[in-house]
């Protein structure tokens, strides 16, 4: 099962964001699995660019919402304004009515504003003034948050974090990539010059393909074994929920598609595991200070393949 258009999409993004193949692949897998992405990182590492580039190469509309502490739900969802000409209230859709939303610094906003976004994400529709309006399809939220220890943040509760399919970190680029970035052309211009590689319709088709990817009983055994380990072994505070297992399987399917396979492999599960557990699983002893890669590696090495 070769899907050259996805390879082209990845190649385009990697040309602009340098040295971040793995997070980019995860971001695309998240989109293909119809999930939303949470990026936790310092400012200036390319979060906005990533969202922008994804929208461009996939031919999607793009909006950015900068979260602040004085933000209200209406600032996200939209507001009804009295139109004197027609003599009626007219709904002005908020920035959320788009295909790719970049919700920047989501933990700067109050829980009220956060939950407005998260409910829209979950239900893929907005209800205002008693009327329910569907959000466009495909609909993809990339939220960024500052590391929780920064001043003036409202940390998202675990139940809200669970709405994000994946959580990734971009991190600083390695020196070679950084040098290329500094020496290369202006990224803004490069983004502007990008052409769409696929249509939104094709993307919806691809999302449907992902859902059909074969997960064999042996693989489901493996997912269950991983979950069972997190639930029984004493090193985890609380085990993975069934929803987390579903998320793991969904992203692993998308990962298999990106690898041109029609079936999920344990390697796929292992590759996406850090993003799945980063915001869901807390080790008791904070292995490697909670670095998701290290935590995932510890989990993987504790569970033999069934």
């Amino acid at each position: 099962m070769r899907l050259p258009e996805l390879d082209a999409v990845l190649a385009d993004i990697n040309r602009i964001i340098l040295g971040k193949e793995q997070p980019i692949r995860l971001a695309l897998a998240c989109l293909l699995a119809r999930g939303h992405l949470l990026i936790e990182d310092l400012p200036g590492v390319g979060k906005t660019t990533l969202a922008h580039v994804l929208a461009r190469v996939l031919g999607l509309d793009f909006q950015r919402i900068q979260f602040t502490s004085d933000m209200l739900p209406a600032d996200i969802l939209g507001v009804s304004i009295f139109d004197r000409g027609s003599g009626a209230f007219h709904f002005h859709p908020g920035p959320i009515f788009t295909q790719v939303v970049l919700a920047d610094e989501i933990n700067r906003a109050t829980p009220k504003a956060q939950s407005a976004l998260l409910e829209a994400m979950e239900e893929r529709q907005v209800t205002a003034e008693g009327k329910t309006r569907p959000l466009p399809e495909p609909f993809f939220v990339i939220a960024t948050q500052n590391p929780a220890h920064q001043i003036g943040t409202f940390p998202l509760p675990e139940s809200q974090l669970d709405r994000f399919l994946l959580k990734i970190e971009l991190g600083y680029p390695d020196p070679v990539a950084e040098r290329e970035l500094l020496a290369g052309a202006d990224r803004q211009k490069m983004v502007a010059s990008l052409a769409a590689r696929i249509t939104p319709q094709r993307l919806v088709e691809l999302q449907a393909t992902v859902r059909e990817i074969h997960a064999s009983p042996a693989l489901i055994d493996y997912v269950q074994a991983l979950a069972a380990h997190t639930r029984t072994a004493p090193r985890w505070q609380a085990g993975l929920s069934p929803r987390a297992c579903l998320a793991l399987l969904a992203v692993a399917r998308a990962w298999a598609v990106l690898d041109s396979r029609n079936h999920v492999m344990p390697e796929d599960v292992q590759a996406v595991l850090p993003g799945i557990i980063a915001h869901r699983l807390r080790p008791v002893d904070e292995i490697a200070h909670g670095d998701p890669e290290a935590v995932a590696a510890a989990l993987i090495e504790a569970v033999p393949l069934p």
């Binding site: 492999m265 390697e267 292992q270 090495e301 033999p304 393949l305």
Partner: peptide, 8 residues
Amino acid sequence: HSWEGPLA
């Protein structure tokens, strides 16, 4: 390693 995927 018993946890290692066959392709890897």
